[in-house]
Write a protein that binds this DNA or RNA. Structure first.
Length: 328
DNA sequence: CAGATTTGACCGGC
DNA sequence: GCCGGTCAAATCTG
């Protein structure tokens, strides 16, 4: 346990150092006439490093489960609930006692902004405010199951002024409801999957395999912030799925034992898109620990016969990774 | 008609 | 007093 802890500390240190180094590079780049793409890549790498560091902290139990990035200034709040309005009047705890997780989510116009909130939970919008100094309003969401499941988590969505494709999502509290999570990703053990005929799997596997758009090229290895992230793949016929396809994500993990399971019907519950959805099964591991991935990694085409797949995968009940189409 | 969204009002923190 | 966060009535939607 002790050595495991020091290993994690070392990794944490490495990530932080790497983040700083990349930040320095970026600073140097800013003084040059480097491409915007290059700068974007450096920024992504910085974010990736800090994400990894935070993840290590999280698994290490050093911080609260909700990835506290901005600690409240006063005493710790109860695990999740915001007080009811009546209670607020007595306790004056309307603000600032709930730990926050700030998450930056990049979306693009093709995947649409509606998908932004697809983080696996069901949210109800309860407010919108114009925020001083930001031309975009901030939206306020709370868990749909606030009343029925006593789940008091909230999130705020703020579109970035600098880059309208970036949304800052701030989570407050953590879900205490289990039903809040949408059944967007089907468990490998689910009867629904088991019922699918083997023949269908085989045929499909022969038909399509998946590889990175440009393996080895860092430009395609976007890094992400959790819990939502974007990742893109391009299918290539007659090529095997590369286990390292995800190794540049913030968790530095890899997919292995990947298997194409079967295509979903367009009526799929998980992908309301009119186009076909496909599913991949994989095991995900990283240097910190091996995940027990009980869920399916899913992919669906943005257009019929499109070589581009959007992936959607989940590794942990608290993290749902939304994938949006990566630029082709 | 029930549930979700919109939006002006209210409230507390700074 | 300003600003951000939430409430709740009105409105919309399926």
């Amino acid at each position: 346990m002790e050595s495991e802890s020091s290993l994690e500390k070392q990794e944490l240190k490495n990530e932080l150092v790497q983040g700083m180094e990349v930040a320095r590079k970026l600073k140097a780049e800013l003084g040059l006439e480097s491409s915007a793409q290059n700068r974007d890549l450096l920024v992504e790498r910085i974010l990736s490093s800090y994400d990894k560091a935070l993840l290590i902290l999280r698994w290490n139990g050093s911080v609260s489960k909700s990835h506290t990035l901005q600690q409240p200034t006063k005493t710790s709040p109860p695990q999740s609930p915001l007080p009811h309005k009546q209670e607020l009047k007595h306790t004056s705890q309307k603000r600032k006692l709930i730990p926050k997780l700030v998450n930056h989510v990049k979306v693009n116009s093709e995947s649409g902004f509606e998908g932004l909130h697809e983080d696996g939970y069901s949210w109800r919008k309860y407010g919108q405010k114009d925020i001083l100094g930001n031309k975009y309003p901030r939206s306020y969401y709370r868990c749909t199951f606030r009343n029925t499941k006593d789940c008091w988590v909230t999130k705020q969505v703020q579109r970035s002024e600098d880059d309208p494709n970036i949304f800052d999502i701030t989570y407050k509290g953590s879900h205490t409801c289990s039903k809040g999570k949408k059944n967007a990703v089907v468990s490998a053990e689910s009867p629904e999957m088991q019922e699918k005929p083997q023949e269908s799997q085989t045929n499909f596997q022969n038909m399509l395999t998946v590889a990175t758009t440009n393996p080895g090229n860092e430009e395609t290895a976007c890094s992400f912030t959790s819990p939502s992230t974007s990742i893109g793949f391009r299918t290539q016929e007659n090529q095997n799925f590369l286990p390292s396809v995800l190794e540049n994500n913030p968790f530095s993990g890899s997919l292995s034992q990947t298997q194409l399971l079967s295509p979903n019907t367009p009526e799929s519950n998980y992908f309301p898109s009119p186009f076909c959805a496909y599913e991949l099964e994989g095991i995900y591991s990283n240097p910190c620990s091996e995940f027990d991935v009980s869920e399916i990694i899913s992919a669906h085409t943005s257009t019929i016969n499109s070589p581009i797949f959007d992936f959607d995968f989940s590794l942990d009940p608290n993290f749902r990774f939304n994938a949006s189409r990566f630029s082709s």
